[in-house]
Design a protein around this nucleic acid. Structure first.
Lengths: 125, 125
DNA sequence: CTAAAACCTGACGTTGACGTCAGAGGCAAG
DNA sequence: CTTGCCTCTGACGTCAACGTCAGGTTTTAG
């Protein structure tokens, strides 16, 4: 498949795919005329890349870890790096859960205020 | 307290605090000579700001929502915005959990490979 | 065959949350 | 008083992950 199709299937821009190649996250074959050609698996790989981006990994980090994640193999050092990133993700999840709780309690309280009658002492009656 | 002390206590840079003032996230009194003066509560407020940043909110969004979060009150519209952000956070948590599972299974598999004897068919025996 | 759509390379633009530097003023200690 | 650290206001620099535009080639639809 060519770049446009992959972009559509994977839900990213064409520019993003060229960026991934430039940064060695995603290799592409070339047609005789120089157009990029991708295998079906590329769709999953792009989704994986996006997932790792969303997890806060930089493209440099992804380059280092992606082979291990794809073929399920790793040296002890890579295993360490993977654990480090896993822990980072754990911490982020905890932070997010905190923030969500905070918003939830605000939402709950404010909803209650609106329900019981206007707001809670905004000004004197 | 002056800006350096707040920066230390809240764990951010002096520059960040000036940035927050510039973007109306955090007001400051001024000494006669023009130096910024903060109350103790500012420490918590800065931590809250950081938490919301970590949750992916932009400074513009934080400006809109911060008053509600701080005093626990909100108009119906703000309540909507809060819910929207809460849902965003929910989605992010789900994505992160996915990514973590992925890393976990890679870590598990690779650890197993190392444990049972080198790697799983890297080359012919 | 031709026009539209997709693709190519290069290169500059964007955005957010600060970093950093310059030049000048303020403030506690010795 | 001066040494040294803190603070001030601009204002330009940074970095990542693309967006966007220019100018040209290739593929596809009719």
């Amino acid at each position: 498949m060519r770049i446009g199709e992959l972009a559509t299937k994977a839900g990213v821009s064409v520019r993003a795919l060229r960026y991934y190649e430039e940064h060695e996250l995603l290799a592409a074959d070339r047609s005789p005329s120089g157009q990029r050609l991708y295998a079906q698996e590329a769709v999953d790989r792009v989704r994986l890349i996006q997932q790792l981006y969303a997890a806060g990994l930089s493209s440099r980090t992804i380059v280092e870890l992606l082979p291990s994640v794809v073929d399920g193999n790793a040296t002890p050092e890579l295993l360490d790096r993977l654990s480090v990133e896993r822990d980072h993700i754990d911490n982020k999840i905890a932070e997010l859960a905190d923030a969500r709780e905070r918003l939830d309690s605000v939402i709950g309280g404010a909803t209650e205020n609106l329900r019981t009658g206007r707001s809670c002492r905004v000004s004197a009656p």
